[in-house]
Simulated assay, not measured.
Amino acid sequence: MITRSHLHSVEEALRHQAGVVLLGPRQVGKTTLAQDIADSRDAVYLDMERAADRQVLEEPDLYLDEQAGRLVVIDEVQLMPDLFKALRGQIDRRRRQGHRTGQFLLLGSASDSLLHQSAESLAGRVSYHELTPFTLTETGAEAQTPLWLRGGFPESFLAADDRASLRWREDFIRTYLERDIPAFGLRIPSETLRRFWTMLAHEQGGLLNAAKLAGNLGVSGQSVARYLDLLVDLMLVRRLPPWHANAGKRLVKSPKVFIRDAGLAHSLLGIGTQEALLGHPVVGGSWEGFCIENLIAAAPRGSEASFYRSAAGAEIDLLLKLPGGALWAIEIKRTTAPKVTRGFHIAAAELDATERLLVYAGDRGVPGQGGLRAMPLEAAMTRLAAA
Score class of each variant (00 low, 15 high):
residue 32 T to E: 07
residue 351 L to K: 05
residue 73 V to A: 01
residue 197 W to T: 05
residue 47 D to R: 11
residue 119 A to N: 13
residue 362 G to A: 08
residue 90 Q to C: 01
residue 35 Q to V: 08
residue 104 F to E: 00
residue 257 V to M: 05
residue 142 E to I: 11
residue 17 Q to S: 15
residue 364 R to G: 00
residue 153 F to W: 08
residue 326 A to H: 01
residue 1 M to R: 05
residue 6 H to Y: 01
residue 62 L to N: 11
residue 213 L to C: 12
residue 320 L to K: 01
residue 384 L to R: 04
residue 67 Q to Y: 08
residue 282 V to C: 10
residue 245 A to N: 14
residue 258 F to A: 04
residue 380 A to K: 02
residue 258 F to S: 01
residue 343 G to T: 11
residue 49 E to A: 07
residue 363 D to T: 11
residue 182 P to S: 08
residue 243 W to P: 01
residue 139 T to F: 03
residue 179 R to N: 02
residue 279 G to S: 13
residue 299 A to P: 06
residue 251 L to C: 10
residue 261 D to S: 08
residue 333 K to A: 06
residue 282 V to W: 04
residue 175 T to Y: 06
residue 365 G to L: 12
residue 174 R to G: 05
residue 305 A to V: 02
residue 199 M to D: 10
residue 218 G to R: 06
residue 353 A to L: 08
residue 213 L to A: 15
residue 365 G to A: 15
residue 130 E to K: 08
residue 51 A to I: 15
residue 289 G to V: 03
residue 176 Y to E: 09
residue 23 L to G: 02
residue 303 S to V: 02
residue 186 L to V: 15
residue 352 D to L: 11
residue 355 E to K: 03
residue 339 K to S: 13
residue 76 E to Y: 01
residue 130 E to N: 04
residue 367 P to L: 10
residue 338 P to M: 11
residue 336 T to K: 13
residue 226 R to E: 04
residue 126 V to I: 15
residue 167 R to P: 00
residue 279 G to W: 11
residue 317 D to H: 07
residue 280 H to A: 14
residue 192 T to N: 03
residue 130 E to P: 00
residue 172 F to K: 07
residue 386 A to M: 05
residue 310 S to N: 07
residue 210 A to Q: 12
residue 316 I to Q: 00
residue 231 L to V: 05
residue 83 L to T: 06
residue 196 F to I: 04
residue 268 L to H: 12
residue 48 M to V: 01
residue 96 R to L: 15
residue 15 R to S: 09
residue 302 G to C: 13
residue 222 Q to N: 12
residue 37 I to N: 00
